[in-house]
Write a protein that binds this DNA or RNA. Structure first.
Length: 391
RNA sequence: GCGCAGGUGACAGAGCGGUCAAUUGUACCAGACUGUAAAUCUGGCGCCUUAACGGCUACGAAGGUUCGAAUCCUUCCCUGCGCA
């Protein structure tokens, strides 16, 4: 169930409450922390609570492949996580892209302006995925496996998340409008099949808007998916060559999605993205940035982000951010300690950094919620972005 | 004092006559990471040059042999180990 508590006057931003059939509750806008293998990398269950985490997203494809036959007797994601917050599962649709054309095209979802410049353009044989109108074939460790709408829903029902996602095809930013359009037809057919295949009543099913960064397919996508009886909606897919194109995609999509249902922005979540997304009416975001960058030593603060592995942090006695309330900063841990642990390849380094980053993003979302409730969201956005880009 | 092994760029450690400004690792500097193929990847790292090109100075020191030396020879200095 989704209840809107307050709408912003100057933008489409809103504050809401997401309540799950099993009892989990989240205040939105909210960050969804990525825990692909039913675990937020480096974090334990107790850490989730300490980081203000309200929602976690795991991955159908990865869990399906690792659990294998054990899926039938799976304990469920809440048990696996040891945590009773809201859990989502991605459908595996993104892996159609990330293991497929992403490798061949040498791109991410947001393509660089000059793809050849990032120097890792792959060969066609790097593409591990074959897509048909029925579903997708993956090459996984020499084994060929098949995933489609029905199977994805069935797996997600066994995994037992609160919110599950429709199986979709995420296209590459380098795909043509025509390819993108044909992929969109597949995604739409699969969306309807997911609705039909769904058995459990205690899970919410979100539809996914695709259509690349092209106006027509994207608009058609939003209109079509928005018209189906999903419990919520997600914006997915390749979002153009730059952030400004990404925001255009939101602008084209959002008006076609029902106001009263929750909207999720898939896989996007840097600070400026969050503000823009919220401004366009997004309620939840998931992104790998806080956890992955933490493991890579990159720490986020409201004064910008920095790499704690750099030499200037050796011996530094100050916390990551004196204003931060996370267990790491409040616990008296210093940049110097993080530096030493990262250089010693101590696994605790990644955990401490992850604790900080996850807390940072969850806390930022809380601040955003407050700003909306206090009618100062746009001002808060402006002052925060000015501050964070200052250095 | 004798014997043996060595002295290479911030450190460790390759190279053992030309393709060596010198493999590689670490450190250092810079950058990337957006529904996790990722606790990872990329670039730089003697000096001059925006950079390429080019030039200059370099492999303990000084000489020497060679068209050409970090690489061979001589002497000296220094370090480690063993014996006195």
């Amino acid at each position: 169930m989704f209840e809107i508590i307050k709408k912003d006057k100057l933008s489409r931003a809103r504050v809401g409450t997401l309540t799950m059939p099993h009892g989990g509750v989240a205040q939105t806008p909210s960050y969804v922390v990525v825990g692909t293998h039913a675990k937020v990398r480096t974090l334990g269950a107790e850490d989730l609570a300490a980081t203000k985490t309200q929602m976690v997203i795991s991955n159908t494809y990865h869990l399906w492949r690792t659990l294998g036959g054990k899926l039938d007797s799976y304990e469920g994601l809440h048990k696996a996580l040891g945590w009773n917050g809201i859990v989502m599962t991605d459908s595996g649709g993104f892996q159609v892209f990330s293991l497929g054309f992403a490798r061949e095209h040498g791109v991410g979802k947001i393509a660089p302006m000059f793809p050849e410049a990032n120097g890792k353009k792959g060969k066609a044989e790097d593409n591990l995925v074959t897509i048909t109108k029925d579903g997708a074939y993956f090459m996984d460790g020499g084994e060929r496996c098949y995933l489609d709408a029905e199977r994805s829903v069935a797996i997600q029902e066994k995994l037992g998340a609160d919110i599950i996602l429709a199986f979709d095809e995420c296209t590459s930013p380098l795909h043509s409008p025509w390819y993108t359009f044909r992929a969109l037809q597949r995604t739409h057919a699969w969306a309807k099949r997911c609705l039909t295949a769904k058995r459990r009543k205690d899970q919410m099913l979100y539809g996914i808007v695709q259509g690349g960064a092209f106006w027509l397919p994207r608009t058609l996508g939003a209109r079509f998916i928005g018209s189906l009886p999903f419990d919520g909606f997600a914006i997915g897919g390749s979002l153009g060559k730059s952030r400004s194109e990404m925001m255009k995609v939101l602008k084209w999509s959002m008006p076609h999605l029902p106001e009263e249902k929750p909207r999720h922005l898939l896989g996007i979540g840097k600070v400026d993205d969050l503000f823009d997304g919220v401004e366009h009416g997004i309620d939840t975001f998931d992104c790998v940035i806080p956890t992955r960058e933490a493991r890579h030593g990159c720490l986020w603060t409201l004064d910008g982000r920095f790499d704690v592995k750099r030499g200037k942090n050796r011996g530094a006695k100050e916390p990551i951010d004196p204003a931060c309330g996370c267990p790491v900063c409040k616990g008296g841990r210093t940049k110097g300690e993080l530096y030493e642990r990262f250089h010693a390849k101590d696994a605790e380094a990644g955990r401490l950094a992850t604790l900080h980053n996850v807390y940072f993003f969850n806390d930022l979302m809380e601040k955003i919620r407050h700003s909306i409730l206090e009618d100062r969201f746009v001002a808060f956005k402006k002052e925060t972005l000015a501050r964070i880009t200052r250095k």
